[in-house]
Simulated assay, not measured.
Amino acid sequence: MKKAIFTLAIGDNPMYKAALESFQAYADKVGADLVVSEELHYPLNIDNKNYDASPAWSEKLYMAELLKEYDRVLYIDADMIIAPWAENIFERYNALDTIYMFNEGAIKDRTEHAEKISSILGQVDWPSENGKTVYFNSGMILASKESNLFTNASAQEMQKICNEVKFYDQTYINYLIFREKINYVCIDKAFNRMPLLGQDGYKEASFIHYAGRGYREKIPMRELKFIIDYCDFFSDTLSEQASIEYKQQAWHWYMLKQHRKTKIPIGMLSAVFGLFYPQHKY
């Protein structure tokens, strides 16, 4: 059976580089190819600033093309780390006619998004469990040819909703599952461990998702925390020099963001912020 791990990584964010290293290690372990989109195949016109939507989110539709070549495709957001101890998800969830995702609707009410997309693309029988709207997080999707998730998907439909519906890609994928009456199973949280589940125990998960603000706690930026955790998780295989370089890149990324806000020279910003966060300055 031919398997792929698929992600989108555009730009030089050091978080993406570390994520891809963890994805490649996992791909090697489970016998999958790593496929990385570095350009967009489905450009959308997004002009609603209220939702902070990205045209890059449409790239999840590319799974349809990959499923012509591969039997199973695992999509993973590039703000995730796959831990070196991660369980083999392909073996854990092996029904080929089923979509596997994490139901964040059990924790966060997403009824508003379900109702909005239905008002635009047509009503569907949107399910609920324990009185809560089923709504899957699309940061991790495990699909097979037989599931037919993307058979009737289109960038044109995404364009209709991308300026009207929050989390347009995620909401659209949920909508497809229910419109096309596709079998689905909610995965264990260990395969999409998100901050909305809290801080406790997140480092024990297989797939750790740094969505939103991530697990930053008192650390000023999620990219810094991401790299700190990555270097910790892979300390057995990552050289000390490589770890330092990752942390230097993450600190520089933080300084670039501050520079764009303030226009103050990066050297001066680094000196000032280094006084407040000396343990994170490299």
Rank of each mutant, 00 (worst) to 15 (best):
K257Y: 03
D33Q: 00
F90S: 10
I161K: 12
F6C: 07
S22Y: 01
K218Q: 13
M268I: 13
G214I: 11
A95N: 14
K218S: 07
K218P: 00
L40E: 08
A56E: 12
L44I: 08
D52C: 13
L67D: 10
K257L: 11
S118A: 04
D236K: 15
G198N: 13
E245P: 01
N148Q: 15
L40W: 01
F233T: 09
A27V: 01
D28H: 07
D236F: 05
T151D: 12
W126T: 05
S58A: 15
K3P: 10
K2I: 01
K160S: 13
K281W: 05
T133C: 08
I107A: 12
K49T: 11
I161W: 08
E245K: 14
A190L: 07
N50C: 02
K68D: 12
R260C: 03
Y230D: 11
A86P: 06
R213G: 09
A211F: 05
S22H: 01
G11E: 02
N192T: 01
Y26P: 07
Y184R: 11
K247T: 03
D71P: 07
D28M: 03
L142T: 07
Y282E: 09
F23T: 05
L34F: 08
I161A: 14
N192R: 11
A153Y: 04
F207Q: 00
D52Q: 10
R216D: 00
V30R: 06
A143P: 11
G201N: 15
F191H: 12
I228V: 11
S206K: 02
L269A: 07
L275N: 00
E157F: 03
A190D: 14
I46W: 03
R110Q: 13
E245R: 14
L44T: 06
S119M: 01
M158Q: 14
K263L: 08
P278L: 09
K281P: 01
G201W: 10
K218V: 08
A32D: 02
D169K: 02
E87S: 13
I107R: 12
V272N: 00
F233A: 09
